[in-house]
Amino acid sequence: MRKLLIWLPLGLFLGFFALFASGLLKPDDRVITSKLVGKTLPAFSLPAAASDRPGLVSTELATGKPRLLNIFASWCLPCAAEAPQLLALAQEGVEIDAIAIRDARPDVDRFLARYGNPYSRIGLDARSGVQIALGSSGVPESFVIDGKGRIVYQHVGDIRADDVPMILQRLKDAR
């Protein structure tokens, strides 16, 4: 037993070493820019992330009308900074759906109560699986989806006030 314990650290380290080596030798693709721009959304179905909004299913995004898919999280500060712009977009009549990343329902509810709720539907992506399938590497990110459920534009980072006209234009072009 003592003998095993003595050699355990070395064993663990060798495991980590192998992991580091494999990570280092792999081709580097950590800068995730979505290859899905111009393609149809991957299929997904997410449970509701907020108490008063339904969850999100990928097929519901192909409704004939362009819409915005926003990826956010209640624990993300830039997402809070982005909230006024999303509200402004919603006021312009833009339909916004959202995916909350690594979140919990009470936290999302609190976030929405605090910063406003511009969303029609909010899906909960507890393990970032859908986020990564979408080719998104962080929060916040936004996708402009055309009426057929295809991604036409990916916006990495928060939507600033001076990005709003550009987003509106993209949505108009997607018609």
Binding site: W75, R102, D103, A104, R127, S128, S137
Partner: peptide
């Protein structure tokens, strides 16, 4: 698989 681990964890 690709995942990210953030502050909540």
């Amino acid at each position: 698989h690709k995942v990210s681990v953030g502050a909540p964890y």
